[in-house]
Design a protein around this nucleic acid. Structure first.
Length: 332
DNA sequence: CCGTGTGTTGAC
DNA sequence: TCAACACACGGG
């Protein structure tokens, strides 16, 4: 399932040049469905069972049909295919391709829809590595990320903590923000961590507009793994919470009531957030050393502080992203 | 078990 | 560079 090797090395990108521009593809309007029918059943034509197995080719560039009726998106670079993920709708896949095309080939790349993206998106794209963009597309989180960068509540600066060769974040100065001994409900089935209001308001200010839906915050753990949690305010309980993504953290770290989670933030210009945890004193250690041995998977994008963009790092994390498999790294 | 996305080939 | 096709492989 893996293996899309995104090779950032060929950085003909960003500010540099952009290839000549034919005309964007005709934005085929409605009347879709018909032509690309090729439905399996029905269609009592001749050739009946003669294996009309043909898949309905897409009318969009970079989009390929999947056996299950869904659509895949792909783009080529340097003689290699870069898989952009699978999508339920044909046009979703087409848009994913468009996004990748603009990141890989520059602004006026040939696309299915977008003749041009606005400046905000252009900035967003150039501030993220190809691998990151591909990662977002494959996870279908590109839209969310872009929205957040637009709200200027993070992500914008493409500020990611630098990584060393082994993929770990280099040690950087960081200031402790606060800690909390998790409660039974924090590690229970509620899938949420309540952040004490005083700490929440002090360190994770929510803009009024965001409070309702919340925002996505990225935290890096000691292994360099990035955790993404939805952070929002629950009016019902008048409390700030980390929700989506939290249960995964609880599960992987095997957090139990009484354990302590702590949060830090780098003191540098990038406001990278970090999360750490420690087992409640007295609790016996884990069986098969699973505690701090992790698989490392990178994808970035920070939260907080936008604008003050940084360089658009390239090349650094590409090898990691393109690794055929996740690497298992023993921290001990 | 099923869907993904990779391997591969042959056009453009 | 690109899509068509088949199916190995990996996650659930």
């Amino acid at each position: 399932m893996d293996g899309s090797s995104v090779d950032e090395s060929s950085t003909t990108d960003s500010l540099s040049m952009t290839p000549p521009r034919p005309r964007p593809l005709p934005p085929v309007k409605s009347l879709d469905r018909v032509g690309s029918g090729a439905s399996v059943v029905l269609d009592a034509e001749h050739g009946v069972e003669a294996e009309s197995r043909k898949l309905p080719s897409s009318r969009f560039k970079g989009v390929v049909p999947q056996p299950n009726g869904r659509w895949g998106a792909q783009i080529y670079e340097k003689h290699q295919r870069v898989w952009l993920g699978t999508f339920n709708e044909e046009d979703e896949a087409a848009r994913a391709y468009d996004t990748a095309a603009q990141r890989f080939r520059g602004r006026d790349a040939v696309t299915n829809f977008k003749p041009l993206s606005d400046d905000a998106e252009a900035a967003f794209l150039s501030s993220h590595s190809k691998a990151e963009v591909v990662d977002m597309l494959r996870k279908h989180t590109y839209g969310d990320e872009l929205d957040q960068s637009r709200r200027c509540f993070g992500a914008a600066g493409g500020n990611r903590s630098p990584t060393n060769q082994s993929g770990f974040s280099s040690a950087k100065a960081r200031e402790p923000l606060f800690e909390k001994a998790v409660t039974p409900s924090d590690v229970g089935k509620l899938n949420r961590l309540v952040i004490p209001k005083q700490h929440a308001e002090r360190h994770f200010p929510l803009q009024s507009g965001n409070s309702s839906k919340g925002v996505l915050l990225n935290f890096e753990d000691v292994n360099g793994k990035v955790w993404r949690f939805r952070y929002s305010y629950w009016n019902s309980s008048q409390s700030y919470v980390l929700t989506k993504g939290w249960s995964r953290f609880v599960k992987e770290k095997d957090l139990r009531a009484g354990d302590v989670v702590s949060f830090q933030r780098s003191t540098g210009p990038d406001k990278q957030l970090y999360i750490d945890w420690k087992v409640m004193s007295g609790r016996e250690a884990e069986p098969a050393g699973s505690n701090r041995v992790q698989m490392v998977r990178l994808f970035g994008v920070n939260i907080f502080e936008c604008g003050s963009g940084k360089r658009a790092r390239e090349m650094d994390d590409m090898e990691i992203m393109s690794a055929k498999k996740q690497r298992i790294i023993d921290v001990l």
